[in-house]
Amino acid sequence: MNIVISRLAQAVTVALLVGAATFAMMRSLPGDAAWRIAAGRYGYDNVDAAAAEAVRAELGLGGHWFPAFLSWMGDLLRLDFGRSLVSGQPVIDEIAHQLGASLWLALAAVGLSLVIGPPLGILAGLRPGSLFDRALLVISAAFKAVPQFLMALILILVLSVQMGWLPAAGYGQPRHFILPALALALGLAAVNARIARDAMASVAAQPFYAFAEWKGLSRAQVLWRHGLRNVSVPLLTYLGLQFVLLVEGVVVIESNVGWPGIGHALVHAVFARDVPMVQGTALMLGLGFVLVNALIDLLAARIDPRGAR
């Protein structure tokens, strides 16, 4: 119950923050913003002073900031995100359209990172200080030092430009997934391998781990029955926090490879000062984080009934 309440408070604060930030963004649009927006909407040939004035009034760009702020937040709390300043379409439709593409990419990346990272981390954590452990430490530090956009760049250069194995950009076929998902997954795996390694090392150093062996269970049995379950809780909690890293990666990588997702749309919206789109996307990403973490909290509470977290 506590989990739900604190996550709800977080969600509300996220919405307020996004609302305030995007309102400030709206107010700081350069003077000819109404013209630009009207032009974007009706085409440059059809813009006149009246159309610009209509846009100005609609967005509350003139007048005192306070009533405008209240009405802005009011719209937000009614979940009325308005229309895109660029396409004129309702923001909600635009986002619904792009969310799917991003979601699949994110899931593919997380799945791939979980296949790579935690197994290596657990192996290292079982023998802390061993050659394998130290090698993994070095490799994961190196991978962590490569930003995701750079990883994508390197993969594009190596796998598609040089080798020609994969398309550098594009969307629609399974093979289009491999490159962006791998670019995201390698960075995530570098970190969650470390988390899994530390969790495993700390679990293996607990008295109950040794005790399970003293009961007569084999190493593999102890790992399977007592190790993995205990490692999963910190790993899950960490995955929830990693969501932000994932989203940032998605934003950048989608732009890199022209993936028609929410991140790509966000960068475009920021570039075009399409504030309602920025607000809608930011809110969607922030609330997505809260939702994912709430689910992870509930799952972790099921695995670990101590209620410590």
Binding site: Q10, T13, V14, L16, L17, V18, A21, T22, A24, M25, S28, L241, V244, V247, E248, V251, V252, L266, V267, V270, R273, V278, T281, A282, L285, G286, L287, F289, V290, N293
Partner: peptide
């Protein structure tokens, strides 16, 4: 702090850059 943690950092930077 928890709310800021939920928002992708790059996104916040982008919004502030616009302001």
């Amino acid at each position: 702090a928890d709310a800021l943690l939920a928002l992708p950092g790059l996104l916040m930077v982008l919004i502030v850059l616009a302001i």
